[in-house]
Design a protein around this nucleic acid. Sequence first.
DNA 1: GTAAACCCTGGAGCTGGCTTTACGTCAAGC
DNA 2: GCTTGACGTAAAGCCAGCTCCAGGGTTTAC
Lengths: 130, 130
Amino acid sequence: MNISEVSKKYGLSIDTLRYYEKEGLIPPVRRSESGLRDYSEQDCGWVEFIKCMRAAGLSIDTLRQYITLYFKGNRTLQKRKNLLVVEREKLKARIDEMQSTLARLDYKIEMYEGRIVACEKELLKKRKSK
Amino acid sequence: MNISEVSKKYGLSIDTLRYYEKEGLIPPVRRSESGLRDYSEQDCGWVEFIKCMRAAGLSIDTLRQYITLYFKGNRTLQKRKNLLVVEREKLKARIDEMQSTLARLDYKIEMYEGRIVACEKELLKKRKSK
DNA sequence: GTAAACCCTGGAGCTGGCTTTACGTCAAGC
DNA sequence: GCTTGACGTAAAGCCAGCTCCAGGGTTTAC
């Protein structure tokens, strides 16, 4: 799979894919004899994982740490798990905060509905009284 | 209320408060004769609102639009509501995505637990067989 | 065999959102 | 009356995370 196919498949720009690889978020991708990237299934898996984690707000740096540990093998299992646990907690906190903001927006929108109706009634009254 | 009190109260830096005001996210705050900001209750309300919305991911620009509409009065009620509805949908989508990433992290963490246990057993076995 | 369409790299540039800097004013305590 | 420290402004700087560009090598289609 070449880079533009992967780009389309995951909705990440070609530049971003190269950037992620350069930054070590994705292991170095195999190249064809002429030097073109050829993404394996596994590479795609990493791309998808990174995309998902980035969208959830994990930093480039954190993800780089994770993959670095990953490639050190089994003896980093505990560290990797700890990293994930920490990020999971952060994510949970972000979600909770956003949930309550969502509720707040819902409430505000409801209020607006009420006010808009009231405003329209007011207009109607004025028109009738003419 | 002066700027440093508001800063402490809401956990936004003094610089950020000035920045928000300059960018029009917060209405211009009343000044003392000598030009120092003196935040009213209402100002504080805006600060709190903006802080909350920023944390939920609404852009500076969107919030500026909202407050601009707000100060045009009642005839922008519908527009303001629409803006909030759009942002609400975006927020909901972000939350949903993050929820599923959270679930994914939970799953991964569980897997790690299993693997760590397996790894420890392996070590134990090796030690016994010596 | 040549133009069009990809791909490569390294490095510069951009964007959003603050943060720092440089420099000046003012109020309070000593 | 002088220092100290909080406040003011404008403008430059900074950081994360891309995004674009120049310059050059392939591959593909005609």
